[in-house]
Design a protein around this nucleic acid. Structure first.
Lengths: 225, 225
DNA sequence: TCAAAAGTGTTAGATTTACACCCATGA
DNA sequence: TCATGGGTGTAAATCTAACACTTTTGA
């Protein structure tokens, strides 16, 4: 066996997951207290080390699966974080990924088991290492991507009301929008389909439920919010 | 000394530089043929391994300096690339960075010494490993960033004509724009200052030279192209 | 009967796009 | 004198933003 790069140094590579959820009109992330040293007890993202026989994307999906039991989740790389002293335990280069999940899909018992909880994006505690920086960057990236790509539906149940969708946009962008203007834009997107189902949990009168039609999106692709 | 992560595996981490330049109304990148195995002779980005005692950003700057002799260059991370088999030599996770330089700042002799050359972004040859993918992603990112951030000036000499600036935007975005509309937008940006110098190299009549004023930008920051 | 959320159009203002001619100069 | 790139303004069309009232129903 030829070893080409033996004069160079190997480094620990890890992944950290920024898991976004949407609940009570608030954008939230899943964080927990570290269970081991270094940094035991500090607030932290959920992460894991990249193994030799798996790609970094696979490592991210595996880590997310370990924590949530969920597969086929929307995930995107945020970037690599590589300050020399970013981890007090050893030199570790970490690659951050953000994931979008529907909070209802995450089983409560797994949440308790891993000791993680949903924390509002505007109420983050001080965090371990550079995790806060990762979060900020992930949030920024997600905010940019949600404008041009129909990823918001990943954060909602399959059926949702227009008010829910609007609250989501407001939470992500951190500013209120006009209801009539918002709905006008939605109407232009044929892939957001009105069903004849009514949701009565949010109001007495009830609101129509809508659904994102992935197939008719692929053709249309006139997305802009 | 405590070693916290010894049950995990270390991996080679490298950086690869996508160096953009602008010449003859074309956006170009600096690439060369690999001088060593694996992949000797294949077209490749310039890269290097991350050392234990340097951050990944520092590794990128060092690599760029090795190749070009340039410091204080505009650089941004593109992202981490980590397919298991992406490098035929060994498992290597590579972090791509793009850099913007003024082609005239790059000494020809260093270019020959390293065996690299400027290749038009629309005439890329097949490349080693996932370098083509890195290039495409870097180009996309740069294109997004150039719209909202005044980085175009990094690709131009300190003094430039409006036609040069326009050609640059056209090259980056891959589409022509209207001269009058373009100049109208520039006029609204006070930090692009007209000098009373004339450049006669591009035309008989001569064109006014402009300059980007970094200081007045920081205050103004109404950038949109 | 009333509080609370759902639903619905119009208009003014701002932004964007399309478009054509004269100027200065060196060859 | 003419070919070449430099420089300039206006009008139509589109997009964006502001704005208020009626409906339904459960408590």
């Amino acid at each position: 066996m030829t070893t080409y790069y033996k004069e160079h140094q190997k480094i620990f590579v890890s992944v950290d997951c920024i898991i976004f959820g949407f609940e009570s009109s608030e954008l939230k992330v899943l964080i927990g207290r570290r269970k081991f040293d270094p940094g035991i007890g500090e607030w932290s993202l959920y992460g894991g080390f990249v193994r030799n026989e798996e790609s970094i994307d696979d490592a991210a999906y595996r880590t997310l699966y370990e924590l949530t039991g969920l597969e086929h989740v929307y995930m995107r790389q945020v970037g690599a974080f590589g300050r020399v002293d970013r981890d007090p335990g050893d030199r570790v280069v970490s690659i951050a990924y953000y994931a979008l999940i529907n909070v209802k899909d995450y089983p409560e018992e797994l949440m308790r088991e891993h000791g993680v909880e949903w924390v509002g994006i505007n109420h983050l505690p001080p965090m371990f290492s550079d995790h806060h920086e990762m979060l900020i960057k992930a949030r920024q990236l997600m905010q940019d991507q949600i404008k041009t790509s129909p990823i918001s539906f990943q954060l909602l149940p399959e059926l949702f009301t227009l008010t829910q969708l609007q609250r989501l946009y407001e939470a992500v962008n951190g500013e209120q929008v006009d209801k009539r203007n918002f709905r006008k834009r939605i109407k232009d997107m044929d892939f957001i389909e009105k069903t004849d189902l009514i949701d009565k949990t949010g109001s007495k009168r009830g609101a129509y439920l809508y659904r994102f039609n992935k197939n008719s999106y692929n053709e249309a692709s006139n997305f802009k919010l």
